[in-house]
Amino acid sequence: MFEARVAQAEILKKILDSVRELVEQGNLDCSGTGISLQAMDSSHVSLVALLLKSEGFERYRCDRSINLGINMQSLGKIVKTAGNHDAITLSSEDKGDVLGLMFESTEQDKVSNYEIKLMDVDAEQLAIPVAEYSVCVRMPSAEFARITRDLSTIGDSVLISCTKDGVQFSTTGDTGSGSIVLRQSSSVDDEKKAVVIEVQEPISLSFATKFLVQFSKSAALNESVTLNLGDGVPLMVEYPMKEMGYVRFYLAPKLSN
């Protein structure tokens, strides 16, 4: 028996919004420690890694580990029908073929029940080693969203160059070029608005703009985002979710000919 209850549907809506455009279907791996999902986009260039820790749920029970193969679009559409403040309980029998969803309004005067058919998802699991990154940039997630959106009007690739002086996002396209530099915040009252740049080694890497735009749509998950860059490893973009866990995106770089 698997059962997980979140106090407010809002967080689940935000999580599904952040991954469902990138990932069509995936396996929710449910175990005693929580729910995780690892899924690549259809072009096998980027990967979403989601972790929802058991302690982040209001109630959590998972007697034996199970994989729930889910169409993320279908799940997203159903969860969207819940009120933001509704409690949501996810459930599945050990050998069941559906994922049950129960929404309860705060006043307990409305209860909605849905079932989603489970599917066999043949997803390749990748072993992602803990990487040592040369650069870690923490910045406001809204700023990251704005930069990627602005540069996407010009070019297909964004070059991210980072030194101790700042991080530069630049692009070139048929119509011209553009670049945006962010400097480390000298003093900021609100830490969430700060730009913090940690550099072991300066680095420059190119990435496909469209994926950066997709990742940046997760801004609702956290006011801050971290970009982790290393030589010879994919970019890792992380949106932490307080006690709940995280959504991480991995993106393979582009290499010049």
Binding site: M40, H44, L47, Q125, L126, A127, P234, A252, L255
Partner: peptide, 14 residues
């Protein structure tokens, strides 16, 4: 022009 590398190049399958 830049070549997009596949993610599998970096991470082995389990």
């Amino acid at each position: 022009p830049a070549n997009q590398i596949a993610l599998i190049t970096f991470y082995q399958g389990q």
